[in-house]
Design a protein around this nucleic acid. Structure first.
Ligand SMILES: NC(=O)c1ccc[n+]([C@@H]2O[C@H](COP(=O)([O-])OP(=O)(O)OC[C@H]3O[C@@H](n4cnc5c(N)ncnc54)[C@H](O)[C@@H]3O)[C@@H](O)[C@H]2O)c1
Ligand SMILES: NC(=O)c1ccc[n+]([C@@H]2O[C@H](COP(=O)([O-])OP(=O)(O)OC[C@H]3O[C@@H](n4cnc5c(N)ncnc54)[C@H](O)[C@@H]3O)[C@@H](O)[C@H]2O)c1
Lengths: 224, 224
DNA sequence: CACACTTTGTGAAAGCCTTCACAAGCGCGT
DNA sequence: ACGCGCTTGTGAAGGCTTTCACAAAGTGTG
């Protein structure tokens, strides 16, 4: 039943990656007062196919009613529970440059239970400055943040050259989940999860498609 | 030979998504003076398996030498060509808030041939201000940017409520590639490519793993 | 030149993920 | 109470992606 690509509770990784999207769509619907939703309309709102949505939800359990659909609030609760969003997650941001400051100022974190509890930087000039209501702390404070505040998630927004070092510090302190904005492949011990957000990669993928399209258009003109 | 998941030139989508990673690893190696690299070491640097790397590269052609490896500079050239990075790509950023400004100030764009040629905003207060050496323009300037500057890629950094509207404006102006930072599913006509960067989704995926790990640890303690 | 050694390129196999198709289940109207 | 229409949940099928395993093709050495 469970395989290499399955997570501890038997939910496939790809499904986990789509659950946040369903959650967002459901929240929008619930806010609009909609109490029930069919797989067809929720799928359309989430940008996936109805069968994929149903298969994904079937991994969580049977929370729909045949002939009717899903109760919005119930599904929100179930997905939140599956993702572990019934508690708050303390987050620390490492690297208070352009990006780190924008992330620290961003209000969208809090809504889903992610609390930025600390901002860290390696530059003595930056440490001690106040950003978005928090004092920037030195890297040496990391272990205390984990033990005292239950810090669980670290966001790396340093230059690529410092990313591995910061990652090592996070891991040594006990952080097991890392979101990496630096364009580097991070080496971590088993049990630590790293997710990467890479702007340059995204742009290069878009470039490929623009490039391919330009070619296709050109070929068509020539061919016609 | 080519299938639904294949791109116009027969390169699978998943391969395209990994090519930028190989390119970055190769550039690092080339800068360090390494003239040749084996699939094993390039794979390790890129964080993939050697067989996956070789299969990916085989879609571009046979540029390796058996018994030796790949010539670094040659492979950089071939991947760049495949991705369409042999020319410059004009980029416009829409929405000059916290995130938009961080993106505009970011120097990492230029290195791979992405040129931020325009910053746009819908707020009359913001239009005309100077950010990162560019004057913020009104949305109405979009069509001219496409026809006069060849604008090909649009980055959306507006609040989610404005994202679809900005997307429509980009598409109407002729932009075919969009990078969306707003947490919204964008509806676009066929032929337009949208890629999404969603911080909240990434954090929720990390939360799932932290959550699962906490559970597993707890169960282990109880079981022992 | 032959041989040993290395590493690529690639069919074939295995494993995942998505889509299909439909039985099962529920509500509602009569 | 019963049948009709609708939508879920899910085996089975199909398609992609990854991994395996090895022949092919270089290099270098004696
Ligand atoms: N700014 C953007 O829009 C953007 C976009 C995409 C990706 N990125 C990536 O995000 C990262 C940060 O970008 P940025 O523009 O904010 O860079 P930045 O140079 O403005 O800021 C980097 C910060 O990291 C700190 N730092 C450096 N070494 C450190 C260490 N060893 N330990 C702790 N802190 C350290 C520096 O003091 C500085 O405050 C980079 O890797 C960049 O490639 C940035
Ligand atoms: N700031 C972050 O670190 C961060 C992180 C992740 C995601 N995001 C997402 O990125 C987006 C932008 O975030 P932000 O913090 O920069 O928001 P912001 O409110 O600071 O800025 C939004 C900007 O968009 C402009 N705008 C609004 N409506 C517009 C319209 N119709 N046309 C053109 N411009 C318009 C506004 O004038 C403003 O300048 C949001 O969707 C947010 O969810 C931001």
């Amino acid at each position: 039943m469970s395989s290499l690509h399955d997570t501890p509770r038997g939910i496939p990784e790809v499904t986990v990656a789509r659950l946040p999207g369903y959650l967002r769509a459901l929240t929008t619907l619930a806010d609009a007062g909609q109490e029930s939703v069919s797989s067809e309309s929720l799928a359309a709102t989430s940008g996936v196919s109805p069968s994929m949505l149903r298969k994904d939800l079937s991994h969580l359990g049977s929370y729909g009613v045949r002939g009717v659909g899903y109760e919005t609030s119930r599904l929100i609760a179930e997905i939140s529970a599956a993702l572990g969003l019934t508690r708050d997650w303390p987050v620390a941001i490492v690297g208070m440059g352009n990006l780190g400051r924008a992330l620290a100022a961003y209000q969208g974190f809090a809504v889903r239970g992610f609390q930025v509890i600390a901002l860290l930087d390696g530059d003595a000039e930056v440490v001690g400055t106040r950003i978005a209501g928090l004092d920037v702390q030195p890297m040496a404070d990391l272990p205390a943040l984990v033990t005292r505040s239950g810090l669980a998630i670290g966001v790396i927004a340093t230059p690529p050259s410092a990313a591995q070092q910061c990652c090592d510090a996070l891991v040594a302190a006990g952080v097991r989940s890392i979101l990496n904005f630096a364009p580097t492949v991070l080496a971590v011990p088993p049990g630590v999860i790293v997710r990467k957000v890479d702007l340059a990669t995204e742009l290069q993928i878009l470039a490929f498609h623009s490039h391919a399209q330009a070619h296709a258009a050109h070929a068509e003109v020539k061919g016609a």
